[in-house]
Design a protein around this nucleic acid. Sequence first.
DNA 1: AAATTAAATTAGGTTTATCTAACTTTTATT
DNA 2: AATAAAAGTTAGATAAACCTAATTTAATTT
Lengths: 218, 218
Amino acid sequence: MLSFTEENYLKALLHITLEVEHKNEAGTNELASYLGVKPATATDMLKKLKDKKLISYEKYGKISLSDSGRNKAIEILRKHRLWETFLYEKLDFTWDEVHEVAEQLEHIQSQKLVDKLDKFLGFPEYDPHGDAIPNAKGELKPSFKKTLSEAEEGTTCRMVAVKDNTVSFLKYVSQLDLGINTHIQVLARQPYDGSMEILINDSKITVSQKFAENILIV
Amino acid sequence: MLSFTEENYLKALLHITLEVEHKNEAGTNELASYLGVKPATATDMLKKLKDKKLISYEKYGKISLSDSGRNKAIEILRKHRLWETFLYEKLDFTWDEVHEVAEQLEHIQSQKLVDKLDKFLGFPEYDPHGDAIPNAKGELKPSFKKTLSEAEEGTTCRMVAVKDNTVSFLKYVSQLDLGINTHIQVLARQPYDGSMEILINDSKITVSQKFAENILIV
DNA sequence: AAATTAAATTAGGTTTATCTAACTTTTATT
DNA sequence: AATAAAAGTTAGATAAACCTAATTTAATTT
């Protein structure tokens, strides 16, 4: 059983090593500053994580997650994103409020809880930020986060999140009956200004390029 | 902000002092054994809780919760019972599984989460064990836990929990279409063997005294 | 290549929550 | 009331997670 702190270190390492494609390693200072602790503190913990075979690491060297460390980290990420989805979809939290609470909820230990929550939410693939949720096997879909403005003419996509969190934008979004998981069919794009004609819920509407750039789709 | 451990001490004190009517105080050993720690450990924590004005306590004397300590403890109890209700009603946990997970969930810090969860659950008054859930103001309804066998003839009550958790009992309960919040009208009681004629969901059925003794009502 | 800067580690200290062992106070029993 | 038993406290240790200050190693620059 890992402590909250150990879990947070693993999660931080997953985040850092995933941030830059094919980087796959982190430095002590980088990790420490990400977690808001001093490098000396991180060094201590790194020794411990190495002893537990959760990372591979040599003195003065780079850090990378071992297979078991990565699996653990992905489990935590899965919980985090499932809870964010729960808070957003079931409890009406706003996009910006979910993260802080999910930071706490992700540490609850109960396999049954995770699985049942997943089922309760309908096995969602993306969280309210448009990030992929690892499934029960720990498979993490590469999160092809595209904006609606990048969608091809004639294709159908699904809205997974918004980029802009301003009140005026969100009001506009809900006015159009757009929400997470709404299917959007791209009918045409105007070459002049990039505005798009789209079909949602059987009604045809036109949105500006600026608007389309703030809708994340899959 | 209290630590998990401090919260657990307060919760334990609430539990002990509430267990016996009008007792309202606890001893060090009693508290320690309830929490599974050594008396010496409890003594240390009691000093700390006293400094924080959460309990009133003198060396070698009895312990009781201060007003602010009791409020804190009731908040935690509220969270515990709301989460148990959530796990039971929304995630299909069984009666016996909810406690352990709720022990963890009760420590999540977010007023908004508690309030929204409460609303999501429809402001429940009783948890799956039939215990009263403190409301947002911290008001804890005296939990008149009665069994169906104690209900007066001619009255209508509401099922809040079961006492027996065996599979055979639970199967029987669900077979009869009985569940939490089911309304039960007591039609008649047979003086000979205590069996009861009751009305649930517009159908008249007869249950044994043994059965009625294991259904908790309000 | 030497010198400087940046990155990382070590040593020693703090706080929280726990322990054991020894001691003190209170309560109960004879 | 004296003594034994029970209840509670103190002192000193430990482990986890953090810190600062000093030191060492690695990387960069001239």
